[in-house]
Amino acid sequence: MERYEANREARTVILDRLRTALDDRPKPPPVRRAYRRERPAGLDVVGRFAERVADYEATVLRVYDAQDLLSAASDLLREAGVSRLAVPTGSRLAWLTRLGVELVVDSPPLDNDALGEIDAVATGCALAIAETGTIVLDTGPDQGRRALTLLPDYHLCVVRADQVVGTVPEAVARLNPRRPQTWISGPSATSDIELERVEGVHGPRTLHVLLTG
């Protein structure tokens, strides 16, 4: 790989130019982090999260026990017409087999074409953000590698209530930059035509969220 890193001269010149450009020694200003880091006191973060996800035209169902979970999941999958469901290797989603769908475990890793032919994927998440209705995946065991949640057209994401944080700063503080991350806020969308938002371009066109606990 080192063979590409031949332009050391450019490096020296650019760094020199930048240093010369800063001859006036601008004083770096103090960064005042006076903005909110925590959720507003008393906010029902889980409720707010559900509300905000729904604003993106994603379906959110909140369930309180295992029985609820099963019937909600089965409703959602039936509604979406899902018969084969990809799941990550380390997934704790084995209960989904009880719903009569075929589970395809990403082990050994499915190639892109195979993955593209599966209608749906189910994962957990690393955490979720109430204020923005965002789900964060960081390739943890119940989420799998990034392509897994990208090629299938339907994504069922199970979020535990204790995974929901209030604000973006709370989320950033908990995440590990070394892990690849995908922040998902609603289904794929575009506003490129007359700045009118339409859901569904390249990523999953349907996002269903099961909020447990």
Binding site: R52, D55, Y56, I129, E131, T132, G133, T134, R146, P177, R178, P180, Q181, T182, W183, I184, S185, G186, P187, S188, A189, S191, R197, G203
Partner: peptide
């Protein structure tokens, strides 16, 4: 885009 959050943000190291 005038959204609370854009649909996808990717980060890698």
């Amino acid at each position: 885009t005038g959204e609370r959050m854009n649909p996808y943000t990717s980060m890698w190291t």
